[in-house]
Design a protein around this nucleic acid. Structure first.
Lengths: 227, 227
DNA sequence: CGTACCATTGAGCAGATTCAACGCAAGTGG
DNA sequence: CCACTTGCGTTGAATCTGCTCAATGGTACG
């Protein structure tokens, strides 16, 4: 383990309104489950594949990616976790992914055993966790369709619309991840992602400024994915 | 809805030992949740995308596939459900996939509301459902890695080993699905699947007999996927 | 024995990758 | 403050994997 989880250094609390995070309480009906604030620096590992799954995490600010790697270096990112998202749950004792912070990130840490105990005691909590898992399953299956049956252009367009929505839906935002991350999420190469973005811009489906900043023409992009 | 779920016509019960199905009870600790036996013919639809998710299902014998389709006909199969597997759960009121029987299939049907009520009442049941969903999530993420980062040969080899394992692990079995189903699961075309099987046979990684029947050389196949 | 469906095989093509060069912006150290 | 380095992103050319289109073979079923 590269990072120590204790003590959580009482991360300076900023009373900044963070989207879709209601506080440090995991479940509305369960005030005894309080998370411990913690921070990770950009590119820092939260946990590694194979490590014991001792904690679960809720993103407060920043962003986290979870991925798997093959022995020859090929990488597949299975999810980006933005503020409000919960991640780190596993079936079994070990983490099956590696999790890393995309940017400086604040999270709340919960003891997995404690959450499991709460679930075992209170059906309400278990149902919430069940719902969360089912929801993540839906997202994973949507990604499956994307990777299995969509072209590079469709993947990038769908990705942009997804990120926009999760970031508030204004249509203008800075991508929180690099081209490499995008490529490894969409099952493409960075060159293809770059070329596709250029093509979409040429087609008037978006405008770029300084690499990360994009401004979407949602109607045009929607026509690209069109399912 | 193309099929009526009532009455279940008391499907002729064959006392054949079916792998990993312990009986008609969904949860060990919950004998009040009894499933109703039902059968579907080969290629028959169990439920369609967009339909109200009224029931959940447990496979007794046969096999079921769940898939999504794009408007232009491209199809992605997100899962094959073999004896012992549970399917049909959704977050929200509507099914997000279509489910069809691969072969003549016997299932147990449970009222979704009833299962949900049991989960809300008994934390033990909810935890089991949570665990099941988490497990399905793991499978979906494994498929994600397969679709995003593996070659056609690796996909087919991994698929064969997976089916073998789920069918008992003898190394010799009949594939319960067509080439089209395999292709739509692996994000390939039927031609590529066929060519890949021919290639694997030529390399001595398997033997074929009559289209569906295969006999795996597990060691060689394992070397192909090698992660 | 014919029909229909499934699977295999071949030839040519296309979309995405690989390999490589280059531009740009942000550090870093002299 | 500037030279140098480093990382990220873009673009071009050549290559290749897997797809499309097409023909043929095999098997089950009426």
């Amino acid at each position: 383990m590269t990072t120590e989880h204790t003590p959580p250094q009482a991360a300076a609390y900023h009373p900044v309104p963070v989207p879709s995070v209601s506080g440090s309480i995991l479940f509305a009906g369960c005030p005894d489950l309080i998370g411990t604030p913690f921070t990770y620096a950009r590119e820092e590992e939260v946990y590694g594949e194979g490590e014991e799954a001792e904690f679960v995490y809720k993103v407060v600010s920043g962003a986290v990616r979870t991925h798997k790697v093959l022995s020859d270096g090929r990488r597949q990112i299975t999810g980006f976790h933005l503020p409000g998202d919960l991640f780190g749950f596993e079936q079994g004792e070990a983490h099956r992914h590696t999790a890393e912070a995309l940017a400086d990130t604040r999270v709340l840490i919960f003891k997995r055993r404690q959450v499991e105990r709460a679930a075992a005691d209170r059906a309400e909590v278990a149902c919430q966790l069940w719902g969360m898992a089912t929801n993540n399953l839906r997202l994973a299956q949507d990604l499956t369709l994307l990777l299995g049956r969509r072209s590079a252009t469709e993947r990038v367009a769908a990705f942009l619309m997804d990120v926009d929505e999760r970031l508030g839906g204004s249509g203008t935002f800075a991508l929180p991840m690099t081209r490499r991350d995008i490529a490894d999420y969409l099952g493409l190469t960075i060159e293809t992602v770059s070329r596709t973005l250029s093509q979409l811009e040429e087609d008037g489906a978006l405008q770029r400024a300084g690499g990360r900043q994009v401004s979407l023409r949602r109607a045009k992009l929607r026509r690209v994915v069109e399912d």
